[in-house]
Simulated scan of single mutants.
Amino acid sequence: MLSVSEVTSRGSYEECQTTADWLRSNTQIRPTVGIVCGSGMGGLAEMLKDPQAFKYSDIPNFPKSTVHGHAGQLVFGTLKGRPCVCMQGRFHLYEGYPIQKITLPMRVFKLLGVETMILTNAAGGLNQDYKVGDVMVLKDHINMPGFAGINPLAGPNDDRFGVRFPCMSDAYDRKLRQLAHDVAEELGYSDFLREGVYCVLGGPSFETIAECRMLHRLGADAVGMSTVHEVIVARHAGMRCFALSLISNRAVMDYDSEEKANHEEVLETGRQRADQLARLVSTMVSRLGNDNNNSF
């Protein structure tokens, strides 16, 4: 159960600066790449060389991860020679935090000097051509909570982070998406790499059959409970974003089906595909330009 202080603290510029200063004073690593590990994919952080880990509970103003399968720590290190910071476990609306609080790490990363965000998640496949174990490159998203006004940028805008009305038509960087496909082809992963639209819901209950059918008709290829809010805040702050969904289960679309979504299946699928995902991401990181404007 979250305390009142944990729920009400929302992540002001001053809070984010305090957190960034604390991290900067406790590590010599100055990351330019940020990575968020989804359910069952925390192994990405284990690829970092000379890792330095901080428990979320020890970091000033940071929320705490409460989800099984999320280690709940921030890991600094180098990946293919590039300084990185990796979140082993993220935060979700269903944990009870305000949406501004669950996206606080993105603003902290910006203040630390991060230029590129790579985010991963486990998602249910709505596209009937997708199989369990496929990996979907996000080309766009549908922010369903946003339709009800639940947006991490709601409230007064702080121009030190970004503009009042940020563009989201370029939320997922086109060059990074192309790089993923190029790397996947080189590694022999093209047979399970897809590209599609991700829809975020609030959770924590999985979707009903009617909801899955509706989302599919709206144009969503996969559905989950994360990532979109982080991308909105990262783009607001001017960072490039790239995101991958591991299709951990197929959404149930048939009333005669006996299938049921469950979190254990999500974690198991993550374990089975973890090494290949890590290799894909690490190869991409090795080819990133030195700044936001560079090509690869």
Rank of each mutant, 00 (worst) to 15 (best):
T18P: 02
D191R: 11
G43K: 07
L201K: 14
Q178N: 06
G202T: 15
V197N: 12
V197G: 11
M168D: 02
S25K: 07
R24M: 05
L193D: 03
G38W: 04
P60V: 00
E258D: 14
G224A: 12
R10E: 10
E207W: 04
A234W: 05
Q88F: 00
G113A: 01
H216F: 10
E268G: 06
E46Q: 05
Q52M: 00
K64I: 11
E258R: 14
P156V: 09
E230H: 12
V36F: 00
P98A: 13
V266Q: 09
N290E: 09
K101R: 14
N262M: 14
E211L: 09
T269N: 10
Q178E: 01
D182L: 06
Q276G: 02
A251C: 15
H263C: 07
C86S: 11
Q276K: 12
I150E: 08
D182S: 09
E230T: 14
F192E: 09
A278Q: 08
E95I: 01
H70S: 07
A210Q: 13
V108A: 08
G133P: 11
L119G: 00
L218F: 15
S190A: 14
T103L: 06
M87H: 03
L193I: 15
V223T: 12
I142R: 05
T19E: 06
L288W: 01
N249V: 11
M47K: 12
R90G: 02
A210W: 13
E15H: 11
M214G: 14
L153A: 01
L288P: 01
